[in-house]
């Protein structure tokens, strides 16, 4: 049996998390967190997750701060940012340095994200 690919999604907005779970659970195994700290815990709990998608603007720890910390511990995983902001200097730098693989804009494009998860 073909096992579903696993993905972690971090967003402080509960509705976004709920919708992501509903939509992506059809084809993937989805784990979600409402902030960066929970996200890091999820990464420790599920070492076989290859793809991590995070919102940018969250309280306490921004998306990029979370990704930076996570990448230190799990450099082999692929990280993505999903944000409602236009691309910023920070995000550009993160793309250049390879910290994040790609940046997705909200409202999200299902096909684009599914394709990205399936690449790994």
């Amino acid at each position: 049996m073909n096992e579903k690919k696993k993905v972690i999604y971090v967003d402080d907005e509960e509705i976004n998390v709920m919708l992501f779970e509903i939509n992506f659970s059809v084809n993937f195994e989805v784990y979600t967190a409402l902030n960066g700290i929970e996200g890091l815990e999820l990464l420790d709990k599920h070492p076989d997750v290859k793809v991590v998608i995070s919102d940018m603007k969250m309280p306490e720890m921004s998306g990029l701060e979370f990704v930076t910390k996570a990448k230190e511990k799990y450099p082999e995983k692929k990280f993505y940012i999903l944000t409602g902001f236009e691309i910023t200097k920070e995000i550009k730098n993160a793309l250049k340095s390879g910290l994040i693989h790609k940046y997705f804009r909200k409202p999200f494009n299902m096909l684009e994200i599914e394709k990205a998860i399936n690449e790994h």
Binding site: N16, L19, N23, F85, K106, P107, F108
Partner: peptide, 21 residues
């Protein structure tokens, strides 16, 4: 405008999510 764009993109994301589902 930067603020409003972000604030509107978020609920648009909800609508997009429900539309897809």
């Amino acid at each position: 405008t930067a603020g409003v764009a972000h604030e509107i993109n978020n609920p648009l994301n909800f609508i997009m999510g429900s539309y897809i589902g």
